[in-house]
């Protein structure tokens, strides 16, 4: 006898008649289960969460601090703090966004320690107008990065992003390199969406201007 298999939605609504339809709209993110298991003391589940996000957290920390050893320490601290505070994670945001937020705070704190006489915050240097108006209108050569070795290119990219104020560097890293949405970036940094957009524009324009020195058709540093 052929019987149709009820969909998971039908099962759920049978079990919980009052369940609002939007609860069924999207399946829960796989991290939700891993976090729940980790909260219950499942070490393998927490290790899996580390595996998933360690690269992103490490790169974010290194982009902000510009220091590899700091990034390593910060990555370890981020996951340890996350573990200690797992009970506080309510699942209102993505687990990865929560981790990034911890990583940004830890990284800025590390920068503050390094520059004891200077305040380092998301607002540092963002009041300037530098780079908000393009000045270089030289076209770039086609595939300009191919004129450099991998090591040369990595050095150019490191030097270029290191020259941005931390507030711009962080927004560019999260939004354009780590591919967070504008809203997730705002949430991770505790900024408004318009503030993220404004900083992102200026970060992109400043990086463009600086890379033009290497990639522009008529520039001195170009190969």
């Amino acid at each position: 006898m052929a019987t149709s298999i009820p969909s998971p939605e039908e099962n759920l609504t049978d079990l919980v008649p009052g369940l609002p339809p939007d609860v069924l709209a999207e399946p829960p993110h796989p991290d939700v289960e891993l976090v729940a298991r980790a909260k219950a003391g499942d070490a393998a589940a927490f290790e899996q969460l580390i595996r998933q996000y360690e690269r992103q957290i490490f790169r974010t920390a290194q982009h902000i601090t510009q220091n590899r050893e700091d990034a390593e320490d910060i990555t370890q601290d981020v996951f340890f703090k996350a573990f200690q505070k797992l009970e506080q994670f309510q699942g209102n945001s993505k687990f990865s966004t929560w981790l990034v937020r911890i990583a940004v705070n830890e990284s800025l704190m590390r920068l503050r320690k390094r520059k004891t006489s200077k305040t380092v915050s998301m607002d540092q240097d963002v009041q300037t107008d530098e780079g908000s108006i393009p000045r270089d209108f030289a076209e770039w050569r086609p595939n300009p990065e191919q004129n450099y070795s991998q090591a040369e290119l990595a050095e150019i990219l490191r030097k270029t992003i290191a020259g941005l104020p931390p507030g711009f560097r962080t927004v560019f890293t999260l939004r354009d390199i780590e591919n967070l949405s504008t809203e997730e970036t705002a949430e991770a940094l505790g900024l408004s969406v318009p503030a993220v957009k404004s900083r992102l524009l200026r970060a992109r324009l400043q990086l463009r201007e600086r890379l033009s020195r290497y990639f522009g058709k008529t520039k001195e540093g170009s190969k």
Partner: peptide, 21 residues
């Protein structure tokens, strides 16, 4: 030119991670 080179700026950073892991 600004649009073209800004797009390439984003692409080059996305395509070439400068930090090894």
């Amino acid at each position: 030119v600004v649009v073209d080179t800004t797009r390439k700026t984003i692409d080059v950073y996305r395509g070439h991670q400068p930090y090894e892991f």
